[in-house]
Write a protein that binds this DNA or RNA. Structure first.
Length: 803
RNA sequence: GCGGGCAUGGUGGAAUUGGCAGACACGCAGGAUUUAGGAUCCUGUGGAGUAUUCCGUGUGGGUUCAAGUCCCACUGCCCGCACCA
């Protein structure tokens, strides 16, 4: 009988839905396992072949865990707010809600056609008011704790999307999403104080099982640095504070640089202290008009203007040094001003060379006339008063102690991380549940008035000045103050897409609760997520944001754990057949629907896991996929090649036990490709031994089930093994049966293989060496030579060193 | 520029962590079956050679009885950060 994948897959998928085979149980006494994959944004393009790579991987883990007796929660939902839907809606004059509904239906059908064992009873959707009620609720709590604040600020504004972007969404000065130019705008924005959690977001990574590249990327992004703030007196009177990580080099500071936006500059101009105010103003204006892109693009040549009329005073030696403004100093980091040590900082060195400023060597080890000597591990201090003779590592704390004692500075920790710009001037997002009252200021909506639902709107276009389209709905905007009852106005900005995804995993634990975001019982049982897999592109956005929100929820007692995810892994991209990223314009897109209909979901799943190292990018190959189909056919036709016997035949014993061990270990270690290879090898073994016994076949079906659930379930039924495979038990192996009693070992002479012999694995070294030397080829080779050394590696090889 | 990673057949990739390189699969070649095949099955397949031989894991050097694996230098790709003081 031929292997009819369409029929078999349809049959089992319907059965799984009908019988709720994979629904998580609410029995909180069972051992639990919560597997999570990033819920997709239901785009109009439908599922991409990249999605199933992640989903199948954790589906395999989930299915294995169920067979091992765990109560598994493997849920799915929709991260459905966002710009593409809104843009599509505008273009085609369809309401985003309708667009979302259609896209979700398509995605869901596609996911179900892959036989993923999601618990569909717990499906969530971020655009559902019963869901975003709690997103808004969290925002209100953040506001109440002072972690959400509104601030007039210079923001990144995407000229394409007409929307404010978070720092994380700006890549190389352009919009991460659409690639349009990003310009600066002054706007009043809701901000979230993620910086308050910066230390914890770094420190708590240590207790987690995160893929190393993930935790390093987060650490780099947060960018914690330990340094010193140093106060320089100025001839203008003000104290100019700078931040440095190299307090040891203070004696080498020959000038100072302020960012063009530094507040003192305006003050000094206003007070008439600058002799070249015109020149300074011109430079500041030019800097202000540059986009981030230009400011970073033009970083080859340093520019700047000296502030004529004000000098800084170096606190260690009282010397007066000039002050410049330059856009290589960032207003948003440290104090917005630096001390420049051209001898030991590359940027300062370039600047000093261009403006002909003195370069003083204070750390010995390089040639500061040729280039800056920046090494902080090898040098010794010179020309540095009380620091002379010390190493850099000794000099830093010594200088910090001195500065503190003199009241001229102190230790300071800085971060690259900035607060999270949380406002979006768009329609298709969660309304921010805040009301502005002239008397009371910003007032959150009372919790019993949540959710604040999105009002109906026909025209989703943002206003020309970049205000949210909601601002046009004056009836909706004008309201009363929940606090004093006076006239008030609603906030018209909405939340960014990252809001709903920052806590969604919690909702899966208790999706229908209308009293709380999640019940304490549910979160105590299910939390934290045991294994979370997702893309590297979410490391500094979604993953960081959700860790921040979770820590906040921990602080206010909603969740019992400090961290949301115990383990985080990341899959590589699936590239087009030509090795390039799949895209419509490159014409190398593979549609999962086509693969499922031609080869079946089981083949598709197997292939995506076999394609290569799970963590690395891999190109699609329409040839290789046939190999996976062939393998499944061989498994299918094994039902006609049953051999007599009850258990495992002695000849197959080692092979089977080893395969059970290998498949189990490889699933846990993200090595799906070698797990499949091991099963293929076992299949080859069966063929070489005339087929399989009932028991041998049963074990193969169990091992293969997490990868190819439909075909194995069908065969399980046909073979009458009893019940459904989904309710069976994962096989166990016997360590003692994983090794052969005898092995063929190699005999090397001076490291070159000269012969091979069969020996008992448990044989003594002396015994094996004797057998080896008795081998005719070896004996001939050793004739007339003196043996210098003899080695035996158990079960592997013998090496005889002879001259 | 700084930081991290990788480099293995025609291809995707294995290699129990220093112990028989190339598992498994694709592709290719030959054969069987077939009216036919881009279907299925068998056999072969790192290179050179008549060989019971030699060479072989980006390049050059080193450590070791033994190196794809460890160390040093170089080359080439990929990723992250990108004036963060």
């Amino acid at each position: 009988m031929r292997y009819n994948h369409s029929e078999i897959e349809k049959k089992w998928q319907e059965k799984w839905v009908k019988e709720k085979t994979f629904a998580a149980k609410s029995d909180y006494t069972l051992p639990k396992f919560f597997a999570l994959v990033e819920f997709p944004y239901p785009s109009g393009q439908g599922l991409h072949v990249g999605h199933p790579r992640s989903y199948t991987a954790l589906d395999i883990v989930s299915r294995k865990r169920r067979l091992e007796g765990y109560n598994v929660l493997y849920p799915m939902g929709w991260d459905a707010f966002g710009l593409p839907t809104e843009n599509f809606a505008m273009k085609n004059h369809i309401h985003p809600e309708v667009v979302t509904k259609n896209n979700v239906a398509r995605f869901k059908a596609q996911l179900q056609s892959l036989g993923l064992s999601f618990d569909w009873d717990r499906e969530i959707n971020t655009t559902d008011p019963s869901y975003y009620k709690w997103t808004q609720w969290i925002f209100v709590q953040l506001f109440k704790k002072g972690l959400a604040y509104k601030k007039e600020m210079n923001v990144n504004f995407c000229t394409g999307c007409k929307v404010v972007l978070a720092n994380e969404e700006v890549v190389n000065g352009v919009c991460e999403r659409c690639g349009s130019q990003v310009v600066h705008k002054n706007k009043s924005q809701w901000m979230l104080k993620i910086t308050e959690y910066a230390d914890r977001l770094v420190d708590d990574l240590d207790g987690l099982e995160y893929a190393e590249r993930v935790s390093t990327q987060q650490k780099n992004w947060i960018g914690r640095s330990y340094g010193t703030e140093v106060n320089f007196d100025t001839t203008a009177g003000e104290v100019l504070t700078v931040y440095t990580t190299r307090a040891d080099t203070l004696f080498g500071a020959t000038y100072m640089v302020m960012s063009p936006e530094h507040a003192y500059i305006q003050k000094w101009m206003d007070e008439g202290k600058l002799n070249n105010a015109d020149e300074v103003t011109a430079y500041r204006d030019a800097a202000a008009h540059k986009s981030d892109f230009e400011r970073t693009e033009l970083n080859k040549e340093k520019t700047g203007v000296r502030l004529d009329g004000v000098m800084g005073i170096n606190p260690v030696n009282g010397l007066e040094i000039p002050i410049f403004i330059s856009d290589y100093v960032l207003a948003s980091y440290g104090t917005g001003a630096i001390m420049a040590v051209p001898g030991h900082d590359t940027r300062d060195w370039e600047f000093a060379k261009k403006f002909n400023l003195p370069i003083i060597e204070v750390v010995k080890g390089g040639d500061v006339e040729k280039e800056a000597f920046v090494d902080c591990h090898t040098g010794v201090m010179v020309n540095s008063g009380f620091l002379t003779g010390k190493t850099v590592q000794e000099a830093i704390p010594a200088m910090q102690a001195w500065l503190t004692e003199q009241g001229k500075g102190q230790k300071k920790v800085n971060f690259k991380l900035r607060d999270w710009v949380f406002s979006r001037q768009r329609y298709w997002g969660e309304p921010i549940p805040m009301v502005w009252c002239d008397k009371c200021g910003w007032v959150p909506l009372p919790e019993d008035q949540l959710p604040l639902t999105l009002p109906e709107l026909k025209d989703f276009e943002p206003t020309t000045d970049g205000e949210s389209p909601l601002s046009r709905l004056t009836d909706w905007v004008n309201t009363t103050c929940p606090h004093c009852g006076g006239a008030a106005k609603r906030e018209t900005d909405t939340m960014p897409q990252w809001a709903g995804s920052s806590w969604y995993f919690l909702r899966y634990m208790d999706p229908h609760n209308d009293k709380a975001l999640v019940s304490p019982e549910a979160v105590n049982y299910w939390g934290p997520v045991d294994w979370y897999n997702g893309g590297m592109e979410h490391t500094t956005l979604h993953l960081l944001y959700s860790r921040f929100w979770h820590k906040f929820l921990y602080d206010i007692g909603v969740v019992p754990t400090k961290e949301p995810y115990a383990k985080r892994t990341s899959h590589g991209m699936i590239l087009g057949e030509n090795g390039e990223k799949m895209s419509k314009s490159r014409g190398n897109v593979v549609n999962p629907d086509d693969i499922v209909s031609e080869y079946g979901a089981d083949t598709m799943r197997l292939y995506e896991m076999f394609i290569g190292d799970f963590e690395k990018a891999a190109p699609w190959s329409s040839n290789s996929i046939r190999g996976c189909r062939r393998f499944l056919e061989r498994v299918w036709f094994l039902q006609d090649k049953l051999v007599d016997g009850d258990g495992i035949r002695p000849a197959l014993e080692v092979s089977i036990h080893k395969t059970i061990r290998k498949v189990g270990e490889d699933i846990e270690g993200l090595k799906y490709n070698t797990a499949i290879a091991a099963m293929m090898a076992l299949m080859n073994d069966f063929d070489q031994n005339g087929g399989a016994t009932r028991e041998e076949y049963r074990i193969l079906l169990l091992l293969l089930n997490p990868f190819a659930p439909h075909i194995t379930e069908e065969l399980w039924e046909k073979m009458n093994y009893g019940g459904q495979l989904a309710h069976a038990k994962w096989p166990v192996y016997d360590e003692a049966k994983c090794e052969n009693k005898t092995a063929e070992i190699a005999i090397q002479i001076n490291g070159k293989i000269r012969s091979r012999i069969q020996v008992s694995v448990d044989g003594e070294q002396a015994e094996i060496l004797a057998i080896a030397k008795a081998d005719p080829k070896v004996a001939a080779e050793l004739e007339g030579k003196t043996i210098i050394k003899e080695l035996y590696v158990k079960g592997k090889l013998v090496n005889i060193v002879a001259k």
